[in-house]
Amino acid sequence: MANIDEKLQKIARDLLESKEVSLIIGYTGGSHPQRMRPVFITKPEDVGRLSFNRHSVQDLAVFLKKQEVKKFGRIGIVVKGCDEKALNVLMQEYQVSRENIKIIGVECNGVIRQDLADKGETDLSENTVYDKCLMCGEHTPILHDYLIECADPQISMSGDIKPFAKIEELDSMSSEEKDVFWEKEFDKCIKCYACRQACPLCYCSRCIVEKNVPQWIDTNFGKIGNAQWNLIRAYHLAGRCIGCGECERACPVNIPLMLINGKMARSIHDLFGYKSGLDVDAKPVFGVFSESDFNDFIK
């Protein structure tokens, strides 16, 4: 661990001292040993605070959408493979330019679920990581300017645990059963929009839910407004969501948002053969007309 932190700190110090970047976004120790939190380093003498371990769950790319971060111009950011996919989408969508960002990639073999970590969990195993880690295909960040190798061993998979098993369970339900399931889940929603705030790809300066002339989406939390919000959020991320899981982690009432996101990602892949965040030069699936689209209405 110390080795990783030292490497991280050296890269950060070099970048800040050479003025290649004016801000480093990374992780530092949190309120207890099993918790990490984001840290923003602007001075070379502060790089000692930077750290990374199996509790670094946050997707730091979310901060790139914030004005107070943007004003730093050139930024260095610590990313896991999954987080880096968010950078790729942000670059695809012209929100981040590659020249202005130094990607400090960290190889990662999984992070421990925060709910378990808060109870003291420190073991990295198939029972303790997020579902996304079990299905991870990008242990090494796709794009990076620096790469720090992984300290953790690969998780051994027994085959007993099926990630996102709930998606298949829902697929097998009737429409009515699904309605009942989701109505119950959305009923919990308190419209705090934490899911939106935590999402690295929800970067609109005015979210559609805040458009009040006219007010398409009910802002109070009721059956219709809740369904509207959750479905629109899902549709706006269809073909874009990279599955970092920050929305679900941020949700104070535990709506299983990754079920929706995961289902959307699967449908997009089935229908269009597209996976979000893998190729910074790819055309976003909903931003392209193709003659091979499964409807022959365009020619």
């Binding site: 969508e93 012209y94 970067y203 300066s205 976003p284 931003g287």
Partner: peptide, 15 residues
Amino acid sequence: EATCVACFYCRRVCA
């Protein structure tokens, strides 16, 4: 122009 964030999906879909 006040609310545009220049994601340019509009440009992509414009035939």
